[in-house]
Amino acid sequence: MDAGLIAIILGVGPAFAAYYLTAIGHGLFEKSGILNLAIDGVFTVGVAVAYVAALFAGAAVAGSVAALVVAMAFGLLIAYLATKLPISHGAIGLSIMFVGYGLAALIAVPIRSQINAVVSYPMNVGVDVAFIIFSIVIGVLVHYMLSRTKLGAAIRAAGENPHAASSLGVNVLRVRLIAGMLGYALIGLGASFYFLAYTPAPYSEGMGMGQGWIAFAISLSAGRHPILTILSALVFAELLYNKFVLQGYLGLSVHITKMIPYLAALVAMVIFMVTPLKRKLAPPRALGKIYFKEERTV
């Protein structure tokens, strides 16, 4: 195979890393029983923070670290509110999504209008390969943690039946806080890769909006399983990375190519739900259910 073709195939690396990490972070958090609808808002904040932090520190890695930390804080907040108080997971998730959309603009737009520069990860085949290996290693670690460790068992127990888990000695709040922190750390990391490696164009308001929902669909269509998500993330990343190829070969309008990932997201969710996959990879039974006993200490 010639080097050009290899470069095109591996060039999907940054896109894959961005969607894959976001999707497994989302899946990890939902495994603990919290319906995660804030994903798109926090992803958008992650993009804004990554842009600003990388620019000021002069290093892309700093952007990733900052996005990871900020997203983590959101994860902790959501996990705390949804576990401690009898509030609807959907309502708190959506509310924080809107906050995220707004904050992202406040963080990045003033900087963008004063400084016209972008600090990003270097773009070459070596870096592309590094992104693929890095994200798959993280995915395998998350899978191992969820299926083989005590913490993973506790997270799954909190997602299946928090009341039973609690009476068996699992501290549901602590477990969900950890899941929120780890899950959102990955979402923040994914968001930073989305901007700093996959689309390092000059920042514009609203960058990243909607991508969180694509990651949501990637995770759902793989039943929140970290290893299966490799496959669904790869399909979506290829679709997005090659959208210009699609445009060229099929003569599609640019607006239609932008729409395709969202259509694919709907189709992927339908495929998952109508095939036996749904039964084999059922969602956590307590997902989105308010966890509340009659009386509770805050």
């Binding site: 808002g41 309502a91 959506l94 509310s95 924080i96 999504m97 809107f98 906050v99 995220g100 959309y101 707004g102 904050l103 992202a104 603009a105 406040l106 737009v109 003033p110 900087i111 963008r112 209008s113 004063q114 308001e205 609203g206």
Partner: peptide, 19 residues
């Protein structure tokens, strides 16, 4: 440079925090 923030984003901030 805050003048470049769109009214949509400002509305998101107000609405998001109230929600």
């Amino acid at each position: 440079g805050s003048a470049m923030i769109s009214s949509g984003a400002l509305t998101y901030v107000l609405i998001g925090f109230v929600l």
